[in-house]
């Protein structure tokens, strides 16, 4: 069992370090933020996970042009991902715009 775990870690060494460090970065970046900014921050983070659209585009690019179901689902996924990205950033910008005055 232990050997298998070690083997898994060895095989995905780079990925595991990457994920672990990203988790700490995420926690560090948010630490100590004033309550006032929680809503815009949540909204900004919401826009950033819209990066999932990159995955949707990759799926589309690898589809066979005659795969109708795939094209429909892929199209839908790209629309939804774009909504997440564009809507997310624009809403956040509107919220933050109000903090800029004075």
């Amino acid at each position: 069992m232990i050997e298998q775990i070690f083997e898994f870690i060895g095989k995905h060494e780079e990925m595991i370090f990457f994920i672990l460090l990203s988790v700490f970065v995420g926690v560090e970046v948010i630490g100590g933020v004033p309550t006032v900014l929680h809503t815009p921050l949540m909204s900004g983070a919401n826009a950033i996970h819209g990066v999932v659209i990159v995955g949707a585009i990759i799926v589309m690019l690898n589809l066979e042009p005659d795969n109708l179901t795939g094209l429909i689902l892929g199209f839908l996924a790209v629309v939804l991902g774009t909504l997440n990205v564009v809507g997310g950033f624009v809403v956040t910008d509107r919220m933050l715009e109000m903090f800029k005055k004075k």
């Binding site: 990457f18 994920i19 990203s22 988790v23 700490f24 970065v25 995420g26 926690v27 970046v29 948010i30 630490g31 929680h38 921050l41 949540m42 983070a45 919401n46 950033i48 996970h49 990066v51 999932v52 990159v54 995955g55």
Partner: peptide
């Protein structure tokens, strides 16, 4: 995708 996703995952959990 990994950085964006994990960043939001951990920051969102903390939030």
């Amino acid at each position: 995708m990994l950085t964006g996703g994990i960043l939001v995952g951990s920051a969102g959990t903390l939030l």
